[in-house]
Simulated scan of single mutants.
Amino acid sequence: MIFYKTDEQVELMRISALLVSETLAEIAKILRPGLATIEIDKLANEFILDHGAVPSFYNYNGFPHHIITSVNDVVVHGFPGSETLKDGDIISVDVGVIKNEYHGDHAYTFVIGDADKEILDLVKTTKESLFIGINEAVVGKRLGDIGFAIQHHNEKQGYGVVRDFVGHGLGKSMHEDPQVPNYGKRGSGLLLKENLVMAIEPMINLGKKDVYIEKDGWTVRTADGKPSVHFEHDVCVKKGKALILSDYTPIEAAEKNNVNLKFCG
């Protein structure tokens, strides 16, 4: 069942989404080689609680951590732990919060130190494809238009577009209808109506699209061991132009000010 939001509910969701953005910006300030990913989890949890919200992910279907940290060939759902970041790593940090009963949920991929050009290009292209997909999230378009736009932009560079995991509707539940694939056919699927709120989140592999889930039941890795990149925004369908509820501006500012990170545009 699809829940279309009122304007007042959309504004509440914007508050939740912006808290996620602020949390990701705080994380961007501390990322460096030698940092254990569990330290990122601790920082995020404290920041979210201090701002009157709770982490969406903690104990969600048994997930044991407050945020998701997916390093290199981990596509999504990576566990924070004692693993330390290294120069040349990429890390996707996915954060969710519940505030005023509504969820915010988005992700950003960071480059630690100096990475190969092919990695930087993958990060840049995936991020571009997120906004290309968002451009299609307007009244009168269809769900397949979003997926097609993301798929086309990445596949023309030879990248693998993950099929097994997709974006989703968002509201009082973290995962609402509809599912929002990063692939599709123009003019197909659900007709988009005003105030549908979605998490649009391309998951793009340097190699093939195939993935597998580890024995922990959560961690998703690329089948060929090549890196994967994940970006995500919370988006509200509007007439003419989509409304992005989350904000990469503070994250990018922190990223540019951290000498340990490589900004990819």
Rank of each mutant, 00 (worst) to 15 (best):
K156D: 06
G62H: 08
L261K: 09
D87T: 15
A115W: 04
I91E: 01
P181Y: 06
V97L: 12
N258C: 12
A223D: 05
G147Y: 06
L190K: 00
I213L: 02
N72F: 02
V97H: 09
V75F: 04
E26C: 03
F79M: 12
T219K: 06
K226L: 15
R186Y: 09
S92H: 05
K226H: 03
D114R: 15
E136S: 11
I48Y: 02
T69H: 10
V54F: 10
I134T: 05
G113W: 08
L143V: 10
T6F: 03
T37M: 01
N154A: 13
I48L: 01
P80I: 05
G133D: 11
S173T: 14
N260R: 02
H106R: 04
L31V: 12
A107L: 07
I67P: 08
G158T: 09
S56D: 02
F79C: 04
P202A: 09
F57R: 07
D177L: 14
D7A: 14
L85R: 08
V71W: 05
P178W: 02
I30V: 13
G171D: 10
Q9Y: 09
N195S: 07
Y102W: 10
D210A: 09
K156W: 00
F231W: 12
Q151G: 05
V259T: 03
F47Y: 15
I90E: 09
D210F: 13
T125H: 13
I200M: 02
R186M: 10
S82V: 11
V229H: 03
Y248W: 02
E155T: 04
K127P: 00
V162C: 13
N59T: 07
V76P: 03
I27P: 05
N72S: 01
E46I: 02
I112H: 09
V237K: 04
H66M: 06
G144S: 04
L196M: 04
N45W: 08
N195I: 02
D145V: 06
V139L: 06
I251T: 10
Y108C: 01
I132T: 06
V93F: 12
G158A: 02
Q157D: 09
I2W: 05
I40G: 05
V93G: 11
T23Y: 13
A28N: 08
D41N: 15
D177K: 12
I68R: 09
S129H: 05
A44S: 15
L85W: 07
I150K: 14
S246P: 00
S246F: 00
L206Y: 09
I213C: 00
S129N: 07
F57A: 12
L130K: 03
I134H: 04
L196C: 11
K127G: 03
G34I: 01
A44L: 05
W218G: 01
M198Y: 10
M13S: 01
Y102L: 13
D234G: 06
S21M: 03
K209W: 13
L170D: 02
I48F: 01
R14D: 01
